[in-house]
């Protein structure tokens, strides 16, 4: 899900960079002190998640966990994701510095969307609702991310990227399933143990 250096055109890079900068600014403003520690833990998790790969046929895909970051952190997910992506680019060579903005948008925008879906109407009340909404957020974070990634490639006008979306979605189905399960389980567990985590300082 990391777009490499030298693939995208300048307008797409600049657009992504601008959008990401604005979102990070909003994210930092909306981060209460009480959420800093949780943000650090999830940042470390997001950073490491991309190293966990799942074999799919001849290829393999990796976890992203942006949906989970979204429902737990709300707007704070944006600065968290940008820091994790920066370190992934510097230490692992995933993505790159010039594409940091676009990659942030590709992964953080779905996180915000997942948060909005999860917390719609004041958030779920029952465990079962939390499971469902968590599952939708987990899978949706990946699906929307892929759509954004393919759009960025399509806007650049590369070698017929749009027909790719079907295959890309297909190989990511296992990731969507796994992230749906992880996110649903954590959402349901937290709803019982610490419901404030899932509602405090949402998108509103």
């Amino acid at each position: 899900m990391h777009i490499s250096e030298g693939v995208l055109s300048l307008p797409v890079l600049v657009g992504g960079g601008g959008l990401a900068t604005a979102a990070v600014a909003v994210g930092l403003r909306r981060t209460p002190d009480s959420r800093i520690a949780l943000a650090g833990v999830l940042c470390a998790m997001f950073f490491v998640a991309s190293l966990i790969h799942i074999p799919v046929g001849v290829t393999s895909v990796h976890l992203v966990l942006n949906g989970l970051c979204g429902i737990l952190l709300g707007w704070t997910a944006v600065p968290v994701i940008v820091v994790a992506l920066l370190l992934q680019a510097l230490l692992f060579g995933f993505g790159g510095l010039t594409v940091l903005g676009v990659n942030t948008v590709v992964m953080a925008l779905p996180a915000l969307l997942c948060c909005a879906i999860y917390r719609a109407g004041g958030g779920p009340v029952t465990s079962r609702a939390a499971l469902w909404r968590g599952g939708i957020a987990g899978a949706g974070g990946i699906a929307v991310g892929i759509a954004l990634m393919v759009s960025a490639l399509w806007l650049t006008g590369g070698r017929s990227f749009l027909p790719l979306i079907g295959t890309v979605m297909l190989v990511h189905l296992p990731v969507m399933a796994i992230e749906a399960v992880i996110t649903a389980m954590i959402a349901a567990a937290l709803l019982r143990a610490q419901p404030a985590w899932l509602n405090r300082g949402g998108l509103a």
Binding site: H2, L51, I52, H53, S60, H62, F94
Partner: peptide, 12 residues
Amino acid sequence: MLTSPAAVDAHA
């Protein structure tokens, strides 16, 4: 995640 045996490779 940190201690999982093969958590050292991925997609680039």
